[in-house]
């Protein structure tokens, strides 16, 4: 293995191939983190909706979850990038095609974010549902309103219980961000493929990309383990004493 080619000037665009790799990592991080903001917010709202007693809220959230997780992410990408501008009103569609800055990036963020939201929603729901019903009844009996029960009991406890599955969703979002290459986002996997086509150093550059993904995974796992020990609920199985 010889990584010397990384310092060579790149085929186009100035800079070296190493700069391309750095750009790739930057886009992978940006797409994943922006999408996670959407996924976490929308997913939390949907998860809460699915646990309420209001039938139409529950139904709406169920339809969303089923619709989004039964369609492959690649199709989501294409729909946000190719189909959306045609379906919205003409003037907005025209702006999305011509005026909007970084259309690939935002399409990827929305596709990945709203797709992952359906999975986050299921985790949040299972967290809230795992809290014994007696606690909700007790909270209501002490005079809290339903929104207060969510605010002070169900959400703080629910989130803490589902930290491990949410961590794995967070890891998945970094891996899934590679699907953004299909609509032209130059993230890490795309850069690796392009560099391999220009330099024929396929083995080296794929190894480097794989190592970067493994490092991202390890970093997330370490950070989340720290978070987990910080906010663990005493007295639950698996939290040690």
């Amino acid at each position: 293995m010889d990584f010397g080619f990384l310092s060579q000037p790149a085929f186009s665009g100035g800079g070296t191939y190493f700069d391309w790799v750095i750009t790739g990592i930057k886009w992978t991080m940006l797409v994943s983190l922006c999408a996670w903001v959407i996924a976490f917010t929308v997913g939390s709202v949907l998860g809460v909706m699915r646990t309420t007693k209001v039938v139409w809220l529950k139904g709406l959230a169920t339809v969303y979850v089923e619709l989004f997780r039964n369609i492959p992410l690649l199709v989501h990408m294409f729909i946000w990038y190719f189909v959306m501008p045609e379906l919205v009103p003409k003037s907005l569609g025209l702006w999305m095609k011509q005026g909007m800055p970084m259309p690939e990036f935002w399409s990827a963020v929305f596709a990945l974010g709203f797709y992952t939201a359906s999975r986050v929603a299921e985790q949040v729901r299972s967290g809230i549902e795992s809290i014994p019903r007696g606690q909700t009844h007790a909270a209501l009996a002490t005079g809290l309103t339903m929104p207060q029960v969510y605010r002070y009991l169900l959400l703080p406890m629910g989130y803490r219980i589902v930290v491990p599955p949410l961590t794995s969703e967070f890891l998945t979002i970094f891996k899934n961000s590679s699907v953004a290459l299909t609509i032209g986002v130059l993230e890490l996997t795309a850069q690796a493929r392009t560099i391999s086509e220009y330099t024929f150093r396929t083995f080296e550059i794929f190894t480097l990309a794989t190592v970067v993904y493994v490092v991202i995974t390890l970093a997330v796992v370490v950070i989340m383990q720290f978070v987990e020990t910080k906010i663990r609920v005493p007295g639950y199985i698996g939290t040690g004493r």
């Binding site: 890891l171 996997t189 794929f206």
Partner: peptide
């Protein structure tokens, strides 16, 4: 653990190579 931390697309590229 290695395969679970690698994106599927990268794995597909790997095997094509």
């Amino acid at each position: 653990n290695l395969l679970r931390s690698t994106p599927l697309i990268l794995v597909i590229f790997w095997f094509y190579f």
